[in-house]
């Protein structure tokens, strides 16, 4: 059980981890006068599920944008498997195995569900325009990709929808599709930005199960979530952000008792019950 990985880890912001797969130092992102992210040091444990929580506007999405190459840092460095990633374009970050999903879902509406899935596969020979002309060159690979996609669709209960346009799915189904599609890209680390928001409660349980399975398969999961029950259920470690900085780290038990965390949440305009922190999921 990977929870052991945190046995010796101190519950304080920036604490070193046993197997760090992702680390950031002095990471700052400013938008004009607003400092959206200002993280001194953070390490993410490999092959574990880390929950990233914090009030709206804390900088969680911006943090994801920065480490996945979708936004440019104002200052700071970050490493993935020891390799510096600043200035690396988003598509290269993804190819290295650091894949993210988006808070506002980006299902490709006019592509069918199965086409969405197949798009996710990396290293496709048929994505070269010359080879694309000759089907026998890429046909076999396409069939393998399709088989893998179908497996994932079954797992995510989307198989019946495989030939529908993604735009015809419900909001929750799109979230599922986006997560399944990200898995097609063979990530080592997957960053999920509010994966459960809008997902039908009946599906949430099985989705949580999938996320746990990802860890069993060797993946590292970092996810943003507002529902504390979910966080408690699946995360091995919780990182709390407020106003751009990491204000606390630890097991969910220690987080619930942390005065800085309670203050941060109470400082916001939201109704908070730390038992079931349930912020407005569609906050935009």
């Amino acid at each position: 059980m990977t929870t052991d990985a945190f046995d010796q880890v101190e519950p304080r912001p920036g604490s070193p981890k046993r197997d760090t797969i992702l680390s950031v130092d002095g990471l700052v992102r400013r938008f004009g006068g607003i400092t959206a992210v200002d993280v001194d040091h953070l390490e993410i444990q490999a092959n574990a599920i880390t929950g990233l929580i914090g009030p709206n506007g804390a900088g969680k999405t911006t943090f994801f944008n920065l480490i996945t190459g979708f936004d440019e840092v104002t200052a700071g460095t970050f490493q993935f498997k020891g390799e510096p990633l600043e200035g690396v374009p988003a598509y290269k970050v993804a190819r290295k195995g650091l894949v993210r999903t988006f808070q506002l879902t980006k299902a490709l509406s006019k592509l069918s569900v199965i086409e969405n899935m197949k798009l996710g596969a990396v290293g496709q020979v048929g994505e070269n325009p010359f080879k694309a002309l000759i089907r026998p060159i890429w046909g076999n690979q396409e069939r393998e990709i399709e088989a893998r996609a179908d497996e994932l669709l079954k797992r995510f209960k989307l198989y019946e929808k495989r030939d529908d346009y993604a735009g015809e799915l419900s909001g929750g189904q799109r979230k599922l599709l986006e997560m399944a599609r990200a898995l097609m890209a063979d990530p080592e680390v997957i960053c999920l930005d509010e994966p459960m928001a809008g997902v039908n409660p009946a599906l949430t349980q099985s989705l949580l199960q999938h996320v746990k399975e990802l860890k069993d398969e060797g993946l590292t999961v970092v996810f943003v979530e507002h529902d504390m029950d979910v966080v408690r259920d699946i995360s091995d470690w919780v990182v709390v952000m407020a106003e751009g900085s990491i204000i606390a780290e630890g097991s969910h038990a220690s987080i619930g008792k942390n005065q800085a965390v309670i203050d941060a949440y109470l400082g916001t305009a939201h109704e908070i019950d730390l038992g079931t922190i349930e912020l407005d999921p569609e906050k935009h």
Binding site: P89, A90, T101, F102, K106, S109
Partner: peptide, 10 residues
């Protein structure tokens, strides 16, 4: 449909 989604897939 969405460039960023495609970027996120490498």
């Amino acid at each position: 449909e969405d460039e960023d989604a495609v970027r996120s897939l490498g």
